[in-house]
Design a protein around this nucleic acid. Structure first.
Lengths: 344, 344
DNA sequence: TTGAAAGCGTTACCAC
DNA sequence: GTGGTAACGCTTTCAA
């Protein structure tokens, strides 16, 4: 593999076509192509084509001070609810001939700062941040001074930045109302990390419904360190290990935690939904294939991705974006992990 | 949000620190920092720190002709077996202070070419390609002329390029041997797309075992257009709809297809493993939570990611990489979707 | 319509 | 050990 050959530059094309580099530059830019006579334009383009010319994006970006890239910050690519969001973003961004730079924080604050530095150094045209924590407001603000930022999925608490999320409060309500209407009166949430707006919203929506009914929520002081199967299992186990009657229904803050709860039940010889009903969240890909198939809350994630990307492009273009927060409505999907309590 | 303020450049730092830009450049480069007196070096660094200086990576890249980015091409980020590979890659690449550029082909040939163009234009330091099809050899060769390329997971058939894959032939063998040793004699594969080396390898490993035993493989001419739940269901349904006795075991080329097969069984009122045993592939995250938990083939994907990235760095550094192909061994995980046939 | 020249911010090389 | 100079490849004035 010989890669030593120097690459063909605009100057080469200009020489081959017998024109000045500036002319060649104009010929190859669709936007400025019609400043030229069709003949010169086409000749240059043909030469470039034949020579396999590719712009040097460094030089172009240096000159234009824009990278043509959009940075996306996510917490964890392994999270199964991310792909549709990323796909939605990609659809919009690629249509604009821009490229996506994806980085992961693993929910670590200092990694977030590092990534932000990278993005700033690379003069990313905009940052789509879906890994924010409540309290990251300062970091986001200082990033926003340099690069357009839009928040996806997770807000930072205040509405200072353009944000598009799922309506997590509504999602929590849907879950609670479903369980209450089935007759459950003794419930518990398996909470995700409380420094993330999504889980905070779910908790509040759920609790709000509780407070308007005769139903009781218990174990309100526990939450997961990460929204994983293991943590779901741990929280559920802690509840089941508590002496006395256990709740008849769990609201897990995502499907992975719901699966962990299923494991905890099984460990104790309990059955879902006979002994305990479980509602998950996200409608992750295999949620309808676990045993039992999960009742869960489905999110319009592809749409969210598309809207976020569209918003990012608008901010790049400098439209008068007032800091809005838009919340897309979720939808309850009823499957077989929920039923009326057997001992009412 | 005011982003109009011009950014601070190296020249500014030099002026503030009372040195020449070239000196400032040296002071800020860890590798060349010790050419300077500690005093000047530290003074420059302090000034840069205080002024919030960030290199302009375009200028640097233009000068160095290297972007500090590694491009990764995958078929589909939603595929649950990718995250560990990406994580492995990221661990290695980030340690080198490089950034990952991730793009998806959706297994579409022209999209692959587009992405390659983008990567070339952006002078990515290397490309890690895990979305190759058998027959993409030409495209890969022309890319490799310009940028170091390593193949991950999927080979192109020939061994012209440095490649690290899972040992799919061995994986197919493990699956076959397991089923045969349980007593199955009438089997079928639910094949993934045959233009992908991974599935091709699994098929061959499986078939090789068949040919050395009294077991018989049937339905050898069917394969999926994509390795999805839907396609797994379709293939399984086609087999079950065929008149006469059906096979007593399926080898699905991945876990998603296995789940599809489970659906097809359920649709026909059949039970796994009582009526039909199923082996999946990949040990995807929820494979042990579906009903029944899947016997499957586990892949050392994190390790693969790490090795691929290490190899890519070696190629970038110009080490004398002879085109090797390395195959990492998979491992059979026995769960509850396989059992001895009930009507032997 | 095209050409000339300057400059984007950085680093490599050569002097001193 | 530090400064000067040039160059990376491109786009964008400004002139002609």
């Amino acid at each position: 593999m010989d890669r030593s050959s120097a690459r063909v530059t605009l100057k080469d094309i200009a020489r081959l076509a017998g024109v000045h580099p500036a002319t060649a530059s104009r010929a190859l830019d669709p936007a400025r192509g019609d400043m030229l006579t069709p003949e010169t334009r086409d000749r240059v383009r043909r030469v470039a084509q034949e020579a396999g010319y590719q712009v040097n994006s460094f030089a172009r970006s240096l000159r234009k001070n824009s990278s043509g890239m959009v940075g996306v910050v996510v917490a964890d690519v392994a999270n199964p609810f991310l792909p549709p969001i990323l796909r939605g973003i990609e659809q919009i961004i690629r249509a604009e001939q821009k490229l996506l730079l994806i980085a992961e924080t693993h929910d670590d604050g200092s990694t977030l700062l590092e990534i932000i530095d990278h993005f700033v150094a690379r003069r990313v045209d905009a940052v789509i941040l879906s890994a924010a924590h409540l309290g990251d407001e300062h970091a986001v603000a200082s990033l926003a001074e340099k690069i357009p930022v839009v928040l996806a999925v997770r807000s930072v608490g205040s509405a200072r930045f353009p944000t598009i999320t799922h309506d997590d409060v509504l999602g929590g309500q849907l879950a609670a109302e479903h369980l209450v209407s089935l007759g459950h009166r003794d419930l518990a949430q398996l909470r995700g990390p409380m420094d993330v707006s999504s889980f905070r919203g779910r908790e509040q929506g759920f609790a709000a419904v509780m407070s308007t009914t005769t139903a009781l929520e218990r174990f309100v002081d526990q939450s997961a360190t990460a929204p994983t199967v293991e943590e779901g299992r741990r929280l559920a186990k802690a509840i089941l290990d508590t002496p006395g009657r256990h709740p008849t229904a769990f609201f897990a803050h995502n499907d992975l935690m719901a699966v962990g709860a299923l494991e905890a039940l099984r460990d104790r010889g309990l059955t879902c939904p006979r002994d305990i009903s479980i509602v998950g969240y996200n409608d992750a890909p295999l949620s309808n294939h676990v045993n039992p198939p999960l009742t869960t809350v489905r999110l319009p994630s592809l749409e969210l991705g598309r809207r976020v990307a569209t918003l990012a492009l608008a901010v790049i273009a400098g439209s008068p974006t007032e800091p809005t927060i838009e919340k897309l409505p979720p939808e309850l999907v009823i499957r077989q992990s929920t039923a009326a309590p057997s001992h009412p």
